[in-house]
């Protein structure tokens, strides 16, 4: 069975993105338990895979249900776009798991 199907929690939000889609991470800056690293906010990358849908940890942290589950993606970013002075080759990347509510089409 495909990993994303076997791992998903229901009920879940409908996934809006698929592998290959270009997405940008929102620039939220709100108080609370946030799971999108600061360094990646505002940057654009390519969806590497849909990981399945999971209870939203930003809600679970406050003892709420985290439902409907949020689609989770692995998004691949080019290091040179994330760090303008990145010293390594152009092809180097960083993959980060990001929940759908942090993503916009780009």
């Amino acid at each position: 069975m495909k990993a994303a199907e076997s791992w998903s929690v229901a009920p879940a939000e409908e996934p809006r993105f698929a592998a290959g889609d270009r997405v940008a991470v929102r620039r939220f800056d709100v108080p609370g338990h946030l799971r999108a690293p600061w360094y990646i906010r505002g940057h654009a990358g390519i969806v590497e895979r849909f990981c399945g849908s999971f209870r939203n940890p930003e809600e679970l942290a406050y003892n709420r249900s985290g439902l409907p589950a949020q689609p989770l993606y692995r998004v691949r970013f080019r290091q040179r776009e994330v760090w303008p002075d990145y010293a390594g080759p152009e092809a180097d990347t960083v993959d980060i798991e990001i929940y759908q509510h942090w993503l916009d089409p780009a």
Binding site: W7, R35, P37, F54, V94, D95, I96, E97
Partner: peptide
């Protein structure tokens, strides 16, 4: 290829 293990 760095993998930042941020979620599940």
């Amino acid at each position: 290829r760095v993998h930042d293990s941020t979620a599940d």
